[in-house]
Simulated assay, not measured.
Amino acid sequence: MSMQPQKVAVITGASQGIGAGLVEGYRKAGFGVVATSRTITASDDPEVVTVQGDIADPGTAEQVVAAALDRFGRIDTLVNNAGVFIAKPFTEYTQADYDLVVGVNVTGFFHITRRVVAAMLARGSGHLVQITTSLVEHASSDVNSVLASLTKGGLQSATKALAIEYAGRGLRANAVALGVVRTPMHAPEYHEALAAMHPIGRMGEVSDVVDAVLYLENAPYVTGAVLNVDGGQGAGR
């Protein structure tokens, strides 16, 4: 029987792209991982527990937290990575678009974070990380992003509120605000145009995001921070 991992991370939106990279990064750091998404399948790594479900459904949050506590007995970190991005002119958003984006980006965050914080408070320590976008602070004429700004902006503000509310009780909360990252979400024919949107002249890589989150993981004096990992977009264009 394998030894219990020292620490445990819960990662949402974990089946591909940034989420899959985060699972790998936390495993390399010696964490046990509970990974969830709508399409995730079982892992052949005994230290990775997968939970398939829609993060907007409170039942998924219940399952994820129960799985973490049943398998590992603790939750040290939650990375709220699940997210939906729909770029449309504001007046063309539909009710279905709104429900989907708010459901995943905000409602999903609320259900799982509330339950994870309760488990963390019982142990007196924990770390919450929200994946947001630099568009929150710096809207771009290249991208129509009102729903992204509405929802991810809410997460960014909530991150600071969580950091302050729980600063005296052993919990930290931080956000990582991203530029455009090379993932399966972006078709290769758009990569050149997307790269040009960043002052650095390239898209982000999944490894850039993982490195940033793991920096925050190992930064006990950092809480309430928004770390821009966006090729300079947040500084200006």
Rank of each mutant, 00 (worst) to 15 (best):
K7D: 06
V8K: 02
A9C: 12
T12H: 09
I18N: 06
E24P: 00
R27N: 03
K28E: 15
V33G: 03
V34R: 11
V34Y: 08
A42D: 14
D45F: 05
D45R: 14
V48R: 06
V51P: 02
Q63K: 15
V65H: 01
A67T: 05
L69H: 04
G73D: 05
T77K: 12
L78E: 08
N81G: 06
N81P: 07
G83W: 00
P89G: 11
T91D: 15
Y93Q: 01
D97G: 01
Y98G: 11
V102R: 01
V104F: 00
V104Q: 02
V104T: 13
G108A: 04
T113D: 08
V116M: 11
A118T: 10
G124H: 10
S125H: 15
Q130C: 09
T133Q: 09
D142W: 13
D142K: 14
S145A: 15
S149G: 15
G154N: 08
S157Q: 14
A163Q: 06
I164A: 15
G168D: 05
R169D: 08
G170T: 03
A173P: 01
A175N: 05
V176E: 00
G179T: 01
V180F: 13
P184E: 05
H186Y: 15
A195E: 04
A196Y: 06
P199R: 03
P199C: 08
R202E: 02
G204K: 01
D211G: 11
V213M: 10
V213W: 03
N218H: 15
A219L: 06
G224T: 09
G224P: 00
V226W: 03
V229W: 01
A235M: 12
